[in-house]
Nucleic acid binder design. Structure first.
Length: 473
RNA sequence: GGUCCCGUCGUCCAGUGGCCUAGGACGCCGGCCUUUCAAGCCGGAAACGCCGGUUCGAAUCCGGUCGGGACUGCCA
């Protein structure tokens, strides 16, 4: 039997990192087994579903490199893979279940239902305990599945092992609403059956729903898939991952210049590991090693710091030419306009040094603004460095010496400046920081000599001049 | 309240009865390098929730306890 797995996001928001991680694990499982990875869109919530969100989800999945073999956008033998186009199928399935006696119509009011729940609760029973088929049959209303009494629903979860629910703790849940629309349980299960899904790997939040899905599957006369309930993702405060953690949607990471390979690598480590000591590895290595059985059972905290570190690792490992191409839009964004050819060559001079210092792409832009734009001095840097004795002399001497440099290259600049330091009896830290602040506006920048070389002689001298005026004034 | 799940450094993982005076990674601290910041290198602090039991021997097996989480809807 060939593996068929799926991810089924609802287009009611951006692709959540939790969903992305689930998609990633399904994808790895499919690729490892040479199986089929399917993308289904669970858009039964017509109110909140939008085409824009659906597009964002597809984009995010593609960006992460999770290509799907069947589903929305690529087609396949099962229609358009949107639940919104399968209402008739769900209604038919519900009708079949009623006909076979596995389900029944129920027109009890919310108040009646509520009373039953209260009674169960008072008796310390599961709230759904008394939600059962009424004595008197009706032919309208919602459709509920009739849970077979007295036999526990037992299944073997790939990550958690044997899991068992007593029938008395499962209520006769609604599968088709009185307006004829299917509930999640019905739609999702019918699709999994119809699409021949072999393994359902999804968030642990759906573990309590699984016996319901198994019951529907059996009532439909189908065989159950394997289940794997993945540990949930939390924020650094231990709360459920949300916007507040700055990590909610995958598109955020794309927009902020993270590399898909890094995000892929990081996500794969949330609830899984390739072995005891490798942290950085390729997709192919992950595919070769992945198995749902190895997924961890405990919830994972999403750590933005570790992702940043990993992104830096990937950026440093990027081919320099490729890095320049990736950095360009961010450099241009930092200065708010596009670069001409001459300016671009300035960036190219220091790009290797910038690459080493970049954890995520926008930082690449921030580091080189001084090459292209006039700037305001960073006040803290100015106060700390420029207020010291001797600074005017350093600036003046440096300006004079540099003015005499003919071959404006980093090595020559360094030679001249080092000569100056020696003559003035200054240490490198003390003598060079004022120049850095004068020329870049901040106390943190790429290495000084290379920065001056890339900036150009004329601009360097002008900035030294300006800093002196600033000090004098 | 009920059902189910989970419990190794702050965090993510390794560990499936002896190889564990518990390993790797992020983060943190210190040092080296050094023109700043990074990177790199070296070193350090840091965990088996607790109590019993099984066993010659337990992070690993069992029981209990405590703690956390998910679900509990004609949402998904």
């Amino acid at each position: 039997m060939t593996v068929r797995v799926r991810v089924a996001p609802s287009p009611t928001g951006h692709l959540h990192v939790g969903t992305a991680r689930a998609a990633l694990f399904n994808w790895l499982y499919a690729r490892h087994h040479g199986g089929t990875f399917i993308l289904r869109i669970d858009d039964t919530d017509r109110e909140r579903s939008t085409a824009a969100y659906e597009e964002d989800i597809l984009d995010s999945l593609r960006w992460l490199g999770l290509d799907w073999d069947e589903g929305v956008g690529v087609g396949g033998p099962h229609g358009d893979y949107r639940q919104s186009s399968r209402y008739e199928r769900y209604q038919q399935a519900a009708a079949d279940l009623v006909a076979s006696g596995a389900a029944y119509y129920d027109n009890r009011s919310p108040d009646e239902l509520e009373a039953l729940r209260r009674r169960a609760e008072e008796e310390h029973l599961h709230p759904g305990h008394y939600i059962r088929r009424p004595e008197k049959a009706v032919a309208e209303g919602a459709v509920r599945l009739s849970v077979p009494p007295d036999q526990p629903v037992v299944f073997e979860d790939l990550v958690r092992g044997k899991i068992s629910f007593e029938a008395r703790d499962i209520d006769d849940f609604v599968i088709l609403r009185s307006d004829g629309t299917p509930t999640y349980h019905l739609a999702s299960t019918v699709d999994d059956v119809d699409y021949d899904i072999t393994h359902v790997a999804r968030g642990e939040d759906l573990l309590p729903s699984t016996p319901k899905h198994i019951l529907i599957t059996r009532a439909l006369g189908a065989g159950e898939p394997g289940y794997a309930h993945l540990p949930l993702l939390f924020g650094t405060d231990g709360k459920k991952l949300s916007k507040r953690h700055g990590a909610e949607s995958l598109s955020t990471y794309r927009d902020e210049g993270y590399l898909p390979d890094a995000v892929f690598n990081y996500l794969s480590l949330l609830g899984w590991s390739i072995d005891g000591d490798r942290t950085i590895f390729t997709r192919d290595e992950a595919i070769a090693a992945f198995d749902l059985i190895d997924v961890s059972r405990n919830p994972a905290v999403f750590d933005p710091d570790k992702l940043s570190w990993m992104n830096g690792e990937y950026i440093r490992a990027t081919d320099p030419e490729e890095f320049r191409a990736m950095a360009r839009p961010h450099v241009e964004a930092a200065i708010g306009r596009s670069l001409d050819e001459e300016e671009w060559s300035r960036f190219e001079e220091v790009s290797d040094l910038v690459q080493e210092r970049t954890r995520f792409l926008p930082e690449a832009g921030e580091q080189v603004v001084f090459l292209f734009e006039d700037f305001e001095y960073d006040q803290a840097a100015w106060d700390k460095v420029m207020a010291k004795d001797g600074v005017p002399g350093i600036l003046k001497t440096a300006q004079e010496r540099l003015a005499a440099v003919d071959d404006w290259a980093a090595a020559d600049i360094e030679a001249v400046l080092r000569g100056m330091l020696e003559e003035m009896g200054l240490g490198a830290a003390k003598g060079l920081q004022p120049l850095r602040v004068a020329v870049t506006g901040t106390s943190v920048s790429p290495p000084l000599f290379e920065s001056l070389a890339a900036l150009g002689k004329e601009k360097t001298l002008a900035r030294l001049e300006q800093a002196q005026r600033e000090l004098a004034g």
